[in-house]
């Protein structure tokens, strides 16, 4: 995938003087783009609007109405009914999963891109293909496997990998390592070989080459991938659904499945819960948008 790797290395911000001529664009393009943009914003704006209105007002006036005041009480109600805990659960799953994924992926990428192996390509195919499978295919065997892996009760109250954060972390890692390996190996291949040569002449061990030479050079790619993986793992719905049984232990993306059951008929609360779930991604979006997009286009293979 060196092609997609490279496309993002063209400085996109620079513009060409010829196509810079904006007057050539028909106004209809703007009409079209603006119309689509407005349509695109409606769902989130509507959710935000609904979440800020008191239930009493929407019950009286209907949801499609103005007036009745603005309130943050829906947010505090949702927050106090478990969302604080769900967010913490998400952090406890996402942070370790991203770190482990990047570490493992960089190890494999380093080995396959900096050394000549017989099975280089087969290995990469194995990793990348694993990333593309629908996870439901593995659900039954994974569940049964985790049920039968014993853990001491001090670590897991189920006595197995079920109903623990570990189980969810491990599955997220297994699913994401493939993509990161793929991106990082392409990235590392593009690093000049002389770097390794020089280190080898100095007698640096394999680990030192990885730790002190290659990894520092990969920081931009790691930063981009980390952003992307935080979002993806935060957004993972399925593994916690399958592996976690205790409601209070669910990460937020899976817990929103219970929103409709818990806040029956109260769309204001549902909207507030949805907004709480969106907020972390929106923060990342506005602060680290560039890294996210860079990570996405860097690999462009993600399914």
């Amino acid at each position: 995938m060196s092609a997609t790797l490279g496309t993002s290395s063209v400085p996109l911000g620079t513009s060409n003087p010829i196509t810079r001529n904006k007057s050539r664009n028909s106004p209809w393009i703007y009409v079209f783009l603006t119309a689509v943009a407005v349509l695109w914003l409606i769902p989130l704006v509507w959710t935000l609007y609904t979440s800020l209105r008191p239930n009493a007002a929407t019950t009286r006036l209907g949801y499609f109405s103005v007036g009745g005041g603005v309130t943050f009480s829906n947010f505090s109600t949702a927050w106090n009914s478990g969302f604080a805990g769900y967010l913490l659960n998400s952090a406890l799953i996402t942070v370790p999963a991203v770190i482990i994924t990047l570490f493992l992926a960089s190890c494999v990428a380093f080995a396959v891109s900096r050394f000549a192996w017989k099975f280089n390509v087969s290995l990469l195919i194995l990793f990348t293909a694993g990333n593309l499978l629908p996870p439901q295919i593995l659900a039954t065997p994974i569940y049964q496997l985790f049920k039968n892996i014993p853990l001491p009760l001090t670590v897991s109250d189920s006595g197995s990998l079920l109903n623990t954060y570990y189980g969810v972390i491990v599955m997220n890692v297994a699913f994401q390592v493939g993509f990161c390996t793929f991106v990082l190996s392409n990235y590392m291949k593009a690093l000049p070989d002389e770097l390794g040569e020089a280190a080898r002449v100095d007698g640096a061990s394999v680990w030192r080459q990885y730790r002190s030479i290659i990894m520092p050079l990969c920081r931009p790619a790691l930063g981009a991938l980390a952003t992307l993986e935080v979002i993806w793992i935060y957004n993972d719905f399925f593994w916690a659904l399958l592996l976690v049984q205790t409601g209070s232990r669910l990460p937020i993306t899976t817990a929103i499945n219970n929103l409709k059951g818990e806040f029956v008929n109260n769309y204001n609360l549902i909207a507030a819960g949805a907004m709480i779930t969106v907020i972390p991604t929106l923060i990342i979006y506005f602060v680290l948008q560039r890294q996210f997009v860079a990570g996405l286009t860097l690999g462009a293979s993600k399914g």
């Binding site: 689509v36 943009a37 695109w40 914003l41 769902p43 989130l44 509507w46 959710t47 609904t50 979002i231 935060y234 957004n235 993972d236 719905f237 993306t253 899976t254 929103i256 499945n257 929103l259 409709k260 769309y267 549902i270 909207a271 819960g273 949805a274 779930t277 969106v278 991604t281 929106l282 990342i284 979006y285 996210f292 997009v293």
Partner: peptide, 19 residues
């Protein structure tokens, strides 16, 4: 704007569109 929904999980999209 066009890219915004890509940041959201499909699960959350289901909830939002329910509204």
């Amino acid at each position: 704007i066009f890219f915004l929904p890509v940041m959201l999980s499909l699960a959350l999209i289901g909830i939002i569109w329910q509204l």
